[in-house]
Design a protein around this nucleic acid. Sequence first.
DNA 1: CTGAAAGCGCTTACAG
DNA 2: CTGAAAGCGCTTACAG
Lengths: 359, 359
Amino acid sequence: MASRAGSAPTIVDVAAQAGVSIKTVSRVLNQEPGVQEATREQVLKVVAALKYRPKLSARSLAGARSFLIGLLYYDPSAAFVAGVQKGATLRCREAGYHLVVESLHNDAADIDQQVERMVSALRPDGMVLTPPLCDNPKVLKALRESQTPCVLMSPGRQVKGQPSVCMDDVHAAEEVTNLLISLGHERIAFIKGATDQAASARRYQGFDNAMRAHGLAVDPELVHQGDFTFKTGVEGAHQLLSRRVRPTAVFASNDDMALGVLAAAQRLGLAVPADLSIAGFDDSPAAGLVWPPLTTVRQPVDQMARTAVEMLIGANRSDAEPPTEASLHRVLPYELVVRDSTSAPFDRPARVAGKARKR
Amino acid sequence: MASRAGSAPTIVDVAAQAGVSIKTVSRVLNQEPGVQEATREQVLKVVAALKYRPKLSARSLAGARSFLIGLLYYDPSAAFVAGVQKGATLRCREAGYHLVVESLHNDAADIDQQVERMVSALRPDGMVLTPPLCDNPKVLKALRESQTPCVLMSPGRQVKGQPSVCMDDVHAAEEVTNLLISLGHERIAFIKGATDQAASARRYQGFDNAMRAHGLAVDPELVHQGDFTFKTGVEGAHQLLSRRVRPTAVFASNDDMALGVLAAAQRLGLAVPADLSIAGFDDSPAAGLVWPPLTTVRQPVDQMARTAVEMLIGANRSDAEPPTEASLHRVLPYELVVRDSTSAPFDRPARVAGKARKR
DNA sequence: CTGAAAGCGCTTACAG
DNA sequence: CTGAAAGCGCTTACAG
C-alpha cells in the first residue's frame, strides 16, 4: 500500500509497507538494539523509497528529546557570531539536531522571564551561552530552574559542575608579550579591555606575567584602561605616546583597540612597525585588512561552539560517561598570528607576508 | 486542583483551574474570537498564576503552524550574518516565533536533499534565503516542492510571484559616483565584484549611469575585475595606479576591496584622500576602523531580515491580503555614509568626523 | 458563546 | 527479537 498522496509519509506508512509494526520502525530509526539485521534492512529500504523523515514535533512531544539546541547571545562582535554559528550549525546537523538562535538584552530587567519563556516553549535539549550572557546570574538561574543543560563559552569564572569551553587567554597574552620582548622591546604599553568582561583581566594577567618573567617592570604610566572599542584605542594611543619616554610597542587587548592605535599612529606620522609595534587580540576580519596587517591571537570560536554543542548532545545520550571536573571544562588551543605590525624597535617595516604559528 | 508537582503545567491544568474546557483555553491563547470577556480574563489569570506556556511541539503536531522560521546561509560575511540574525530574531520573538539557522554549502551536490531533509523534519512556517542560496535553483526547487513559503534576500533576479527583499544597489552606486563627481573627480576608477553575484553588475550599472549622466566617459583602462576580496582590491589598485594618467578616485564595489586599495595606496606612499579618494560599499565594521575611515554605503541588512520574517509571518495569517506583485518585492532604503576617504582631488585631508546622509 | 471527541505522529512502558 | 496499547499536549472539525 502506498502512502496517501499529497501528505508526507508517516511511520504508519513505513510500517505497513515494510510489513512490521511502527515500534520496529521506531527502533531502526533510533538505532535501538534488538532488531534483526534483515528486518532492519527492509525497514531502511522502505524509508529510503518513501523518503520518510520523522517529524520533529511528534518525536519531541512523545519523547524526552527535542533535537533542538538553543544559542543565546547579546550584542556580539560580527566575527564572533559568524564563527559560533558555523561551528554550532555544522555539529548540529551531523547529529540530526537543529540550532535555534535567540538574541537577548543583557540588561533587560525581565531577562529571566524571556529565557524561561523560550525554554518552556521550545524545550531545547541544551543551551549554548555566549559572553556576557554566560556570566549573567539571572540567565543562569532561569536555566537551572528549568533544568536545561548549558555550556558556557568563555565564561568569566568557572562555576563548579557547570560545563564550559574556553581558550587560555592568560597564556595567549603571555605569548604575545614574549614575542614583543624577544623582538627587543622593553617599554611595552598595554591597553586593557572592558572591566565587566572577564577576559580583560586574564589578558592583562598574561601581559604582567610575561613582563615579570623577563625582569621588566610594568610601568603604570604605560597601562591604559580601555573598553574594547576603537575609540578607546585611539585615546589610549594619544595618551601613551605623550609620555616623556615613549613606548616602542603597544599591546592592545583586542583588535578594535589595536586598530585605534594604528589609526592614531598613522595620523601622528609614525611608521608602523618601525616607530611603533602594535599587537592586538581576536584576529578580527579587519586585522588582516589594514596596512600593516596586525599581529594578533586567533580565538578558535567555531571550534569552541562545535565543542559546546558536542558536550550538550553527548550529555543527552544514555551511554554518556559520568563527567569529571576536567571533562566539564574544555580549554581549546589558540593560534598566535604573527603579521607585519610587529618588528624589532626602529626596524624598517618587514616585507614578509603574514604567517601563523600554532600551539 | 493544582498542577502536578514537578512537571510543567499543561492546558488541562489551566482548564481545570479556570473551570472551563481546554478548547476555551486554546481559544484565548490563540486570540480566537467568540470568548466572553470575563471568561477570557479568568483564563489569562490562571495562565499567569501557573506560568503556563503552550509547548511548541504539541501545537506544531496538532496544528498547521510550527512557529519556526528557517534561515539558510552559506559563507556569508561576518557583518552580514550578524545583521541578519539581529533583525530576524527580534522580529521572530515579537511574534512568538523562533529562528532556526542552518548553514549549507552552495556547491554541495546533494544540497536539495539537505534542504528537503531539514524542511520535512522541522516543517518551518517559512524560510529566509540569503545570497547566494537565494539564487540556487536546486534550493528553490526543493523548497517549492515542499511548499515552504520563502523570502529571498537580495536575490540576483526577481522571480515572479516569489517574495523578496532588497536594496537599490544601482541607485546607491549612482549616488556614490555622483558624490565623487561633485567633489571634482573626472578620472574615476571602478573595481567590479565577483561575477557570480548579481549585485556586482548592478553596482557597476549605477557607476556607469552616473558617469554617462555627467558626460564622463568610462575608460575601460580604469575598470578592474575583482571578486570582492581584499586581495583583488590590492591588485586592482596596483594596476589602476600604474596607468599613464592615474585616476584621482577609486570606487571599489565593496569595502574589502576598498580596504585593499587603501592598503596598497599607503604602501605606495600616497596620501588618502589628498592624492587618491577611495569609496567602498557595505559599511563593514572595518570601514570605520581604518585611517582614513571609508566613505561607503550601508545596507540595511537587519531591516531586510526583519522585513523578510514579517512577510513570512504575515502570509501565514488568515486575514492576510492577497499579495500584489509590488508588495511581494520590497526595496529598502540604503544610507550613504560619507567619511574621510573622499575629498576634492589634491585636497588636504579633511579633519571632520564622519557623517551620514539618509535617503 | 462553549465543549466533548478525535487525532496529529511519534515514543514509552509493558507484554510475549 | 517483535508488537499492541497508551499517551505526550495541543488543534481541528463538529455539535449544541
